[in-house]
Design a protein around this nucleic acid. Structure first.
Lengths: 116, 116
DNA sequence: TTGCAATACATTGAAGTTCGAGGTATGGTA
DNA sequence: TACCATACCTCGAACTTCAATGTATTGCAA
């Protein structure tokens, strides 16, 4: 039922949320995003390239991101930035994330009854 | 890339965590769990029977739960309770959940740099 | 100059989850 | 007699993440 070695579940939709968040801060390219997530989370979260690139492509074809190619020191990079639609999407995701996690937190904490 | 109508992603592993948590509090049966989650989260989280029963079965065959059949008012119910192994599993899951969500929260909040 | 690590992109198949719909059966109530 | 709530269960579809693998270039060290 479970056997992941790295992030033991709980990761559904998280990469999309984090990527959108990072890109709203500033333009970045795929490889950079992979490391930014590792670094800023102090290794707590590790999202591989096999996750990042597909998300990037999907987000772009959805119109949430736009890209431009740029060559830096002989390295060809594809920089992504958030579109207006992407911003809205991020806002939605962030809100969902917040309300879901707080609901779960409530369930885990308030052992007995719940209610307001 | 996303299209779920109910819980918009972010649900990976959560049902298992919640079920284990509820059952540690007290013995419950499947149908009851479905409603307990709905009720205690004030509709914020809705986990269908199609999710709960398979998780229950998997958890039991993993030795994390044990069950006993009981008939109440002509209704046949299967009550589940947490084994020692299930308790450990819950502790692990809860810890992972906490550290992951706090890492994500940190990423989302601390816009610029991170570090201690 | 040869070799290796890092940079940078990308794809594939495997595995695991959730989700909704559908199915069976009984009890109580209108 | 209907119908809804209770109570169990399974199936296929859809979506994700993950690790492995592949290409190509740069830069550094042996």
């Amino acid at each position: 039922m479970a056997s992941r070695t790295t992030n033991p579940n709980f990761m559904n939709g998280v990469p999309e949320l984090l990527i959108l968040h990072l890109l709203e801060e500033r333009e970045m390219y795929g490889y950079e995003i992979v490391q930014a997530i590792r670094d800023r989370s102090r290794e707590a979260i590790a999202v591989g390239e096999g996750v990042v690139y597909p998300v990037l492509h999907a987000l772009e074809s959805d119109g949430a991101l736009k890209s431009r190619r740029k060559t830096v020191q002989g390295r060809s990079r594809i920089y992504y930035s958030v579109t207006r639609a992407g911003s809205r999407r991020l806002a939605d995701l962030a809100e969902n994330w917040t309300s879901l996690t707080s609901a779960i937190h409530g369930l885990l904490a308030g052992g007995k009854h719940a209610l307001s």
